[in-house]
Each structure stands twice: as structure tokens, then as C-alpha cells.
């Protein structure tokens, strides 16, 4: 555009770019980048095959302990599989389930919140009460119930998680819509004859998207923990797909002799969730400081 103010042009010097880059949360971003890379190319990045069993190499401790083998840096499990390779490959289940559940839950919840806040009245009151109920209902219980009814699988986990998630997005978006709805530009669009659908999607929705992005980032860590918890309880993505929760559960029996089977996958979960939480906090402070309560 030609109408850019000269000041804006001057800000784009290498020095200011460096300053902006220094302010980014680099450590969380690095962890997330590694996580995404593991999810996308897990099989090729894993040092050895994650499914190769070698019963002569069972229960090898991590490489830095006595008896460890340098080819298996984080040790081997009860079937002689490489723990590091399984952690690398296990990232995918976490990633796919979390992204799918968030996508489904956030779109559904935002739509419901948009319509509910826009029209208001009794329907709005009813939907919000229902959302409160869904938010309060224990997620793990609901997911286990669903597994009992329809059987385990990726779809079950995604559906169960998004059933709770939508309510959080609906609440947030509805609150934002209530404040945007009365602003002058909406009233003007209304006077100009815009249809309700146009008002909602063209005029209001873009103004609430910031908050949705912040909530998405903040919820990612939570969803990863939920997926792992279901995996641990045997209600997650079923084997043979390796998942972190399943691996922690699998190592439980050998806790006395081979703690590394459980500890390293759990550490991976904690690191990734911590990274997403820190990134979410950073984004919220940048984009939408009003959301500090989330």
C-alpha cells in the first residue's frame, strides 16, 4: 500500500526486528517445534524402529547409568523396545487427537456462542446454563462412559474431549459478542440493512477471533493432558499405536526395577504442556490482556 505512514516504514529496521525476535518465548517455541516435527516425521526421526522387539535387550537402563547401552539413550522397555524411539513416535497420537478435538470443539463452541450472544433472551439463558453444566461435568467420567458405550478409538477420544471443550469457547465468544453487539459499527450495519447472518459472520466474528486464538493456545496443553490421561486409563487411542499415556501405564508394573519406561514419556507430556501453557500466557498478554482469568 502506498498510504503507509513513514514512521511505520522506519520501524522495519533490522535492529527492531532483532528486538522483536528477542521478546519471543523461544524455549517454548523450540519445544513445540520439536513436538510438531516428531508428530509429522516420527518414524523417520526415531533412531531405531519403535516396534522392534529384542528380548535379549529388555530393561536396559538409560545410557548414562551402569549397564546402559549408547544405542538406547533412554533405555528399553519390557519387550526390549527403544524408549526414546517410542517417545518420538508417540507424539503423533497426542498431536492429532488434540488438534482434531480443539478444531471440532472450538468451531462448534464459537458458532453456538455467536448465535446465543447475538440473539440473547431465553434461548441464550438456556444454552449458557447447559454450557455451565457441561463445563462442570467431569470430563474423564464422560469420556470413560462414552468408551463403554461406543468402544475405544480416535473418534471416541476426539468426540468426548470436544463435548466439553465447546462449552468453554461458547462461553467466551458469547461474552465477547455481547460487548461487540452494541458498538456503533454494528448498529450502522444494521441500519444499512445487513442480514443477521452477515452481521454475525462478517461484522462480529472477526472482532472476537483474537480471543478464540488465545483460548485455543491456552486449551492445547489441557487437551494434551486429557488425551494422555485417557490413554493411561486404557480409554485412549488403542494399541498398537504408541501413545504417551499408554506408555506410562505400561511401565507401571515395572516401576520398582525399570522406572525409565514410565518416567520419560511422562516427562515428554509435561514439557510439551508446559511449552503450550507458556506460549498461551505470552499470547494472551500480547493479544488480549483482559482474558487474564482464563
Amino acid at each position: 500500500m502506498s498510504a503507509v505512514a513513514p514512521g511505520a516504514e522506519a520501524e522495519r529496521t533490522p535492529g527492531s526486528l532483532w528486538r522483536a525476535a528477542r521478546g519471543l518465548p523461544w524455549i517454548p517455541l523450540l519445544i513445540i517445534a520439536v513436538f510438531v516435527a516428531f508428530s509429522a516425521f516420527g518414524e523417520s526421526l526415531a533412531p531405531v524402529s519403535s516396534t522392534a522387539q529384542n528380548l535379549r535387550l529388555r530393561f536396559l537402563p538409560p545410557a548414562w547409568l551402569a549397564g546402559g547401552n549408547i544405542h538406547f539413550p533412554l533405555g528399553t522397555d519390557n519387550l526390549g523396545r527403544d524408549v526414546l524411539s517410542r517417545v518420538v513416535v508417540g507424539a503423533r497420537a497426542s498431536f492429532v487427537v488434540s488438534i482434531a478435538a480443539l478444531a471440532f470443539g472450538s468451531v462448534l463452541g464459537s458458532l453456538i456462542g455467536l448465535v446465543s450472544g447475538f440473539y440473547g433472551g431465553r434461548v441464550d439463558a438456556f444454552i449458557m446454563r447447559f454450557a455451565d453444566g457441561m463445563m462442570a461435568f467431569p470430563l474423564v467420567l464422560a469420556a470413560l462412559l462414552l468408551v463403554a458405550v461406543v468402544g475405544p478409538g480416535v473418534a471416541t477420544v476426539v468426540f468426548a474431549t470436544s463435548m466439553i471443550l465447546w462449552a468453554r469457547f461458547a462461553r467466551l465468544v458469547r461474552g465477547e459478542v455481547l460487548s461487540v453487539r452494541e458498538r456503533d459499527f454494528i448498529l450502522l450495519a444494521r441500519v444499512a440493512g445487513a442480514s443477521p447472518a452477515r452481521l454475525m459472520f462478517v461484522h462480529i466474528l472477526p472482532n472476537v477471533l483474537n480471543s478464540v486464538v488465545v483460548l485455543l493456545t491456552l486449551e492445547l496443553g489441557f487437551v494434551i493432558i486429557v488425551e494422555a490421561t485417557l490413554g493411561f486409563l486404557g480409554a485412549g487411542v488403542p494399541p498398537p499405536t504408541p501413545t504417551w499415556g499408554q506408555m506410562v501405564a505400561g511401565g507401571r508394573t515395572y516401576l520398582e526395577t525399570a522406572w525409565w519406561i514410565s518416567v520419560f514419556p511422562g516427562l515428554a507430556i509435561a514439557l510439551v504442556v508446559l511449552a503450550f501453557n507458556l506460549l498461551g500466557d505470552w499470547l494472551r498478554d500480547r493479544l488480549d490482556p483482559r482474558l487474564r482469568r482464563l
Binding site: G221, A228, T229, V248, A249, L267, I269, L271, V273, L274
Partner: peptide
Amino acid sequence: AAPSFWVGL
């Protein structure tokens, strides 16, 4: 960030 089942173990 730490899942409780893992903290417990």
C-alpha cells in the same frame, strides 16, 4: 503441566 497420573507414579 505435569499430568497427575505421572506425578503419582
